[in-house]
Amino acid sequence: MAEVSVAADDEAALPPGAPSTDLLSLHESIAGVLATQGDWRRAYHHLKSAFDLARAGSLRDTLTSSYNRRYLDQWLHGPSVERRGPAGMAIALVDLDLFKEVNDTFGHLVGDRVLREVADLLQQGLPSEGFCARYGGEEFALVLPDVDHAHAVRIADTARIRVAHHPWARIRPGLSVTISVGLAHENRAEVVEPERQLRHADSLLYMAKRAGRNKVAYHDKDSSRTIPRSMNSADSPGA
């Protein structure tokens, strides 16, 4: 039996930017061909690459391509104290305001597109070690390591403004989208369990909702605050 040549060993058979599912299938196919030729070392290499791609895919949300709840849980229950950095760490829970009305008015396909675009907007401007994860439904979590309290508030409010100012009407006339954010910051010296910090962010998120939505709620020293503080507040990135 003639030996089969594997021309796609370096993934050159796929166009740039090919989906990871295609890369996974390619690695599996190459591994099968190499195994039939007795080249077990290279077959193992491609099987390992397929496994790594499958694992990476299992940590991504299929709709928005942001990280999923599984990745968030793994990160928070890992050595997160060491990852906080000297300035501490913030967790922000983000919820799309009145998202059910978006689905009811414009349909679920538009709702899905809104979720994808909000995820993209939330991932902009994060610190190098920060990330966005879909927490569930229309909720997202922002994990912001090594940021002080003031910086965390700026990141959260800039994200709020970015979403509110996004040209949603280009998707459908009359469409507008805002988010509410609950932001919980802990100093490095405050070793807080991840569940407690998440619960804190969740309670602040509900505070932002009760204050009228399209707000960021956070603790400032001994009190809780929201921004903007009134519906007439200046609402621009420089405000």
Rank of each mutant, 00 (worst) to 15 (best):
A13M: 06
R170K: 05
A133W: 02
S203N: 09
V94M: 02
S176Q: 12
G32E: 14
T226V: 15
A56W: 11
T158C: 05
E11Y: 10
V33R: 04
L34V: 06
L34A: 02
D61F: 08
F106T: 11
K100C: 01
P79W: 05
A87L: 15
Q37R: 15
R170S: 10
Q124G: 13
A189N: 01
L96E: 00
G78P: 01
A12Q: 10
N214D: 09
H185S: 01
A169N: 06
S25L: 13
Q124P: 05
G212N: 05
G137Y: 07
L93G: 04
H45T: 10
D73N: 06
S203W: 08
R42K: 08
A87I: 04
A56D: 15
V216S: 11
Q124S: 07
R60C: 03
R41Q: 12
F140L: 14
A159Q: 07
Y71Q: 05
A211Y: 12
G57K: 13
A54S: 15
K48L: 14
V102H: 03
D146G: 11
L14H: 03
A8V: 04
G238T: 13
A234W: 13
S224H: 13
I171L: 12
L53N: 03
H219L: 14
P86G: 10
I30H: 01
I179E: 02
Y218S: 05
C132N: 02
L59W: 07
M1F: 10
D10Y: 08
L175M: 01
D10S: 01
G88Q: 08
R113N: 11
D120V: 15
R116G: 05
L122F: 10
D235H: 15
E138G: 06
D235V: 03
A119Q: 13
G137L: 10
M207N: 00
A234K: 14
I155C: 06
N103C: 08
P173T: 05
A201I: 06
A50V: 09
M89C: 14
A92H: 06
D148E: 09
K215N: 09
D202I: 04
A2C: 03
G32R: 04
P228D: 15
P86Y: 14
A184E: 02
A201N: 06
S66W: 05
P79M: 00
R70H: 14
V94C: 02
V147W: 07
H219Y: 10
D61K: 03
E82Q: 12
Q74V: 07
A31Y: 03
S29E: 09
A119W: 08
E193W: 02
G136A: 06
P167E: 12
V147N: 01
V94G: 04
P86H: 15
G17Y: 10
A13C: 14
V6P: 00
T226F: 14
L59D: 03
G17E: 06
Y218I: 04
D235G: 04
P194I: 13
G212K: 10
K48M: 14
T64A: 07
A7G: 10
G130K: 00
D97T: 05
E117V: 11
N214H: 15
S25Q: 13
A90W: 11
A50I: 05
K221M: 12
V192R: 03
E82P: 00
